[in-house]
Design a protein around this nucleic acid. Sequence first.
DNA 1: ATAGGGTTAG
Length: 713
Amino acid sequence: MATSLSSVIQISFLDTKTTRTRFSIATPTLKSHRKFFTTCSKSTPDLPVSETTPPNNNIKNSSLSDQLAPLANSTLSTLPEDQPKLLPKPNPTWVNPTKVKRPMLSHQRQKRSSVFYNPQMREFQHFTQKLNNCDVSSEAEFMACLEEIPSSLTRENALLVLNSLKPWQKTHKFLNWIKNQNLLPMETIFYNVTMKSLRFGRQFGLIEELAHQMIDDGVELDNITYSTIINCAKKCNLFDKAEYWFERMYKTGLMPDEVTFSAILDVYAGLGKVEEVINLFERGRANGWKPDAITFSVLGKMFGEAGDYDGIRYVLQEMKSLGVQRNLVLYNTLFEAMGKVGKPGFARSLFEEMIDSGITPIARTLTAIIKIYGKARWSKDALDLWKRMKENGWPMDFILYNTLMNMCADVGLVREAETLFRDMKHSGQCKPDSWSYTAMLKIYGSEGDVDKSMKLFEEMTKFGIELNVMGCTCLIQCLGKAMEIDALVRVFDIYVEKGVKPDDKLCGCLLSVVSLSQGSKDQEKVLACLQRANPKLAAFIQLIADEQTSFETVKEEFKGIMSNAVVEVRKAFCNCLIDICRNKDLLERAHDLLYLGTLYGFYPTLYHKSQHEWCLDVRTLSVGAALTALEEWMTTLTKLVKREEALPDLFLAQTGTGAHKFAQGLNISFASHLRKLDAPFRQSEDKVGSFIATKNDIVSWVQSNSPSVSIAT
DNA sequence: ATAGGGTTAG
C-alpha cells in the first residue's frame, strides 16, 4: 500500500459544528489496509467516549487498556471508509473548558527528594568498600562485616551504602538487614535504589517480591518504583508482568509521568502492539503531553520493526512540528529502523542532516548506514563513507569492521575486504572474530578461490576462532564448485566435530554438490555427509532414484521434507532434486518434482500470462528445473494447439543473462535444449536473456513436430 | 556518579 505523506499525518475536521483534530497514522502492517487510529484533541465536545467509558470517578478502578478500548472502538467505527481526507478548515475552537479532560499522564516528572550527605560519609564509604570486598557467596562473612558498621545508621548513610554495593545480592541483603534491624523507617527510596541494583542483575522475581513487601507494609510505590519494575520485566522479556504492573499503577490511581509512560510504550512496542502504542501516544498528545526524544526513539524502533517507513517519517515530522531536538541515539535508532525497511536514499540524506547539525557519528551510527548501503548494493556510497570515516578519524569498532567486510561481500569488493581485514588485524584494538572470518569466507567462496578460503580456514583453526555453520557453508560451496571433494569431506568432518549443527542452508549446499558430482565416484562421499546432516533428505534421494517408487509416496515424503525445511531453502532443495533426477535420466520423476514444487508454491512466478503474451520465467531455477519447466510448457502448448484454444500473439521465455548466481550458464543450456526440442524460439535481440516465438511459430511447430515433444507420461 | 526511560551484525 503506497501511502503519501499527507495521509501519514492528517489533521482534518470532520464537521463544522464539533471541531475535531484527527491524527492518523497509516500502518501498512496491520490487517486492515486503511485503518486509521484516531484520537481527539483537547476540544472534543461530543465524542462517543462519554457514552462508552465510565464516568470520571470510576477511572481508578479500570485499567488503562479498558479505558482506551471503547475509545478506539467507537472512533474507528464512526469513521466511514470513504471519509474525505482533508476538509476545508473551519475556525477551530481549541479549548472547551466546560468539558472534563481525563488525564492520561502527568506532565510533571516526579520530583526527587534531596539527599544530603553528612560528615560520616568517608567512614561509610570505607564500610561499603569492605562489604564489596566480601565473598558474595559467603553469608557469614557478609554478616560479620555488617557488624563493623561505623556508627548508627542514618537515612543518608543507608542510601550511600545501598547505592554503592555491588553486586545485587549485597544490595538486597543490606536492604533486608536495615529492615530486620528496625533501624530506620522504610522509605520508598530504599526500595527504589535496591530495585535498580536488582535490575542490573535481571532479578525480576526479587523485584516483584520487594514490590509486594512494599504493598504489604504500606510503603508507597511511586513512578520511579513502577518504571524500574516495568523496565526490569521488559529486560527479562516478561511483557505480561510489565503490563500487569502498569495497569496496577493506574488502578491505584497513580498517573504515570513521562518516564514511566515511555517505558510502557516500549513494552507495547516490544509486544508488537502497534495499535496500542499509537493509541496511547495519541491520547497522551491529545492531553497536551509533549513527548521527548526518547519517546520518539521508542516509536522509531517500533516502526522499523513493523517495516513501516511512513511511521519513521511520521516520527521525524512530528518531532519537527513539536520542536523536539534530535539527538545521536534517536538518529541511531532511526538508521537501524531504516535498515529494516530499506530506503538507502532516505538514510543518506538524514545522515547528512545529522552531520550538518553538528552531531558526530559513533561506530554504531556508521554500522547502521553501511549495512543499509550494503543491502541496497550501493557500493559507491559505501566506499565514499568508508573514505570519509578514515579522513575524519571517526571511531571504528569490531562490529563496524565486520559490517564493512560484509558489505564488501554483498557487493563483491574483494580487495577492499582484504584491506579491511588487514587493517583490523593491525588496529590493535579489534581482533578479527568468527564474523570477520565468515565475511572473508563468503567473499572467497563466491570468487571460487579455494586456496585463499582454505588458508583462512587453517588460520581460524590455528587462532581458535569459533567455527560456525555459515562459514562452513561458504567453504563447502567453494570446495564443491571446485570439485575438491576430499577437502570438502575433511572440512565438514572438522566442523561437525567442533559441534557445528548443519542447518538447512548447509544441507542445500551439500545437496547441490551431490547434483554436481553426478557420475563421479565422489558422489558417495558427499552423500555420506548429507546422510549425517539430514538423513531424511539423503533417504529421499534414494527413494526418487528408485523407479518403482509411486508418485503418492514421493509426494508424501516430499511434503514431509519441505515442511521441515525453512522457507528460504525449499525452492533450492526442489531445484537440486530435479537436477539430480535429470542427471540420472529420470525425466518423469523430474517432472513430478517440478509439479510438486509448483503445487506447494515454490515457483509462484514461473508462468504468467497477459492478453498478448505468455511468459515462462525460469530465472531463479536451476538448469535441470528450467529445462523441465520448458518441456512442461511445450507439452501444454501442444495440447492447447491441438484443442484449438485461444492463444496470445507472443510467447516469451526468460532465462536472464547469468548475473544471478544460480543462473550461470542457464542461458546457454536453455538455448541448447531449445535446439534439441527443435522448439521455434529465438534469442530476442532487444531483450537480453529472453527467447521469443510467435503464435504462428508455435502452431506450425506443433503441426509438423508434435510427437517429438510429448514426454514420457 | 550516587532512586526511573531509548539504539548493534549473517
